[in-house]
Design a protein around this nucleic acid. Structure first.
Lengths: 217, 217
DNA sequence: CTTGCAGTGCTTGTATGCAAGAAAAACCGT
DNA sequence: ACGGTTTTTCTTGCATACAAGCACTGCAAG
């Protein structure tokens, strides 16, 4: 694989994981020095990330890690909810034993993480769970799109899970989702995923409250 | 705007409009000579298009216009159907007079184009109609994603509309969609859009049959 | 006649150099 | 002292140069 592709993944990971703060500047020279390459592959990596929306490239003014306005962020969560609902609908219709098994395993993983009250671990297991749902849709394109958006929203999701009481509720919702999919109930599966992902009520306040910290950085 | 951005739009337009055939090679030197620039901005444009999926960049082997396998293409249409359904659902819930007006105008445009039996014109009006639906969702992110995918599927849509009898049916479906949205019936709006976009039954055969021509090029 | 292999040429990927534009700093006038 | 203007500097964007891989041709051997 080329340097540019490696760098793209690396920088994307650093953004998703929160190592690179939202809104922070991505200086080409600085990154080039840091990774020991010239500016060319750095530019190529940044342009690709800009095309996917993870970074924002202002002409002649460099690139920053995307920090969407709250209203756009809500729109992204709403779109995510719709995409996950679609995955759930299709999964409920098409479920094969293999995917049913994977869902149960992923659910067990979440349960174990919650039992230990380990937020970081739950965060990872949550990622696995949703990935399994995407794949269960048996629509490779939709699954990839959903995964891409999930990763893009990861920094904010991390903030959300910090809120106390969110873990048990999240797990209960996961259980309802699996139950609906396994039962083959398309409508219930879609609705369960939609309401699981959508940001409303208290969670809206939690999300907006959490936005202050990264903006300060 | 920079050269790279201009070139990105230009090449994207040529792909969407079908000037650049599916699967055709995108030679950097050739494009550089054609547009009178160096390879650098060409590469940057191609990399951005690769990140959005419109072109496929094989390492050390250059870039080609994406020509997805049939099964992936069907997945893309299915995902498109789900996204449009989501737009319709939200539009039905949130419809404001401004958007209702725009829907009626777009519908009238389609009707006029069909009256003249002008496929090219209908194609353009169809694009406008769907764009209006996206916007009516009042979700800027979802609307942009939907538009992006719509453009990416444009070459295939063009093939589909060539099929006789498709135009009247498409228009009738548009009318049903508008009726459902204006009535505020979320479920009916979603279902009308889903079935309008999804490729199944005869249209599946039509689509696959149409794929032979571009592959030969 | 087919098949394996080496050499050559062409394409991509990276580095470096240069010019243009924007932010920042310094300077001048009021 | 303050506002506006100029200059300076730093960054981006493009061009060119160079290196590295892959493909294709031609040849020879089975």
């Amino acid at each position: 694989m080329s340097h540019a592709q490696r760098l793209r993944q690396r920088i994307e990971d650093e953004i998703v994981s929160g190592e690179l703060a939202l809104g922070s500047r991505l200086d080409e020279n600085q990154l080039a020095a840091r990774f020991g390459v010239s500016r060319t592959p750095i530019r190529e990596a940044l342009l690709q990330l800009a095309a996917t929306g993870l970074v924002q490239a202002k002409p002649r003014r460099g690139a920053i890690v995307s920090a969407p306005e709250p209203h756009l962020l809500l729109a992204m969560f709403e779109a995510m909810a719709e995409m996950e609902a679609a995955c759930g609908r299709l999964a409920a219709r098409r479920l094969v034993p293999e995917d049913a098994e994977a869902l149960q395993v992923a659910l067990a993983g979440c349960k174990a993480a919650m039992a230990q009250e380990d937020t970081e671990s739950y965060y990872a297991e949550n990622y696995v769970f949703h990935t399994v749902v995407y794949r269960a849709s048996r629509n490779a394109f939709l699954a990839e799109q959903a995964l891409s958006l999930h990763r893009r929203l990861a920094p904010y999701r991390r903030l959300q899970l910090r809120v106390r009481q969110r873990l048990p509720q999240s797990l209960a919702e996961h259980e309802a989702i699996v139950a609906a999919i396994v039962a083959g109930d398309e409508i219930r599966a879609a609705e369960a995923l939609r309401s699981h992902v959508i940001v409303q009520g208290d969670r809206f306040t939690d999300l907006v409250a959490g936005l202050w910290a990264p903006n300060a950085a």
